[in-house]
Amino acid sequence: MSTVQIVEHDRERPPAIRAVPVRRPGRWIATGLAVAVVAVIVYSVVTNPAFQWDVVGRYFTAEAVLNGLVNTLWLTAVALVGGFLLGTLLAVMRLSGSPVLAMISRLYVWFFRSTPLMVQLLFWYNISLLYPRLFGFDTRNLISGLMAAVIGLVLYEAAQAAEIVRAGILSVDPGQREAANALGLSRTRVIWRIVLPQAMRAIVPPMGNQTIGLLKGTAIVSTIAVHDLLFAVQLIYNQNYQIVPLLLVATLWYMILTTLLGIPQYYLERHYAKGTDGEMPPTPAQRLRRRFAGGAR
């Protein structure tokens, strides 16, 4: 027979563990090697006169370059917004009860994902060969290079976004839809207010990736004579033959823009994380404000 014991916890806490850390010589050697390689590359980039950093500096904010930059930016924005809206519609069609709508959505995605963007752009650029007149207008006037770029990018982006949104919708617990239906909410309300906001948590990160790809991908429109960032620097180096420094101008701008894109993504992810696992990390602005308030106290 066992007897019940009441355990008293009045012992003193043992001292915290203090041990000598394990040595990792391999890691030290690898670190040293990597630093050396990086140093050599940086040294050559800075000292190789062929990079012509002074020319880079001169053209970095040239008017033609900035105009190209603006075009790249708004092309990206239009393709992102238009592609996301159309892609969401396609995803909803795919998941709707209608087999015909679902099939149309599948065909769309299949078609636009199975051909290179470059080919699609050239196609839109030359659409007047197929349809010389549209809605009573001369197609060549209607579809400029810029128009072809917008149409091509939006349609292509929509196919990518459709898959991302569909995966996002499927990641939402089916119980959510069920509860919303049981409450008598309409189908559109269930999708837009209950399912999609929760799907956004799974949509924003890959959509951010997709947008970075899109921003860089817009460079392809320079092949149909649209004045984007790449086209602008190409025009300049075709005249002055400073190829490398002007490509560096474009490179630096693309790097800056893709880096900046991380900021809205961060805030979107925070926004859609509402209501999930406890507290969210403070935004940089909140952190500043908190520090300020703390100092004042």
Partner: peptide, 11 residues
């Protein structure tokens, strides 16, 4: 209707 897993809208 009340469900086993509550199914409250988390957002």
């Amino acid at each position: 209707m009340v469900f086993q897993n509550f199914n409250l809208f988390p957002h």
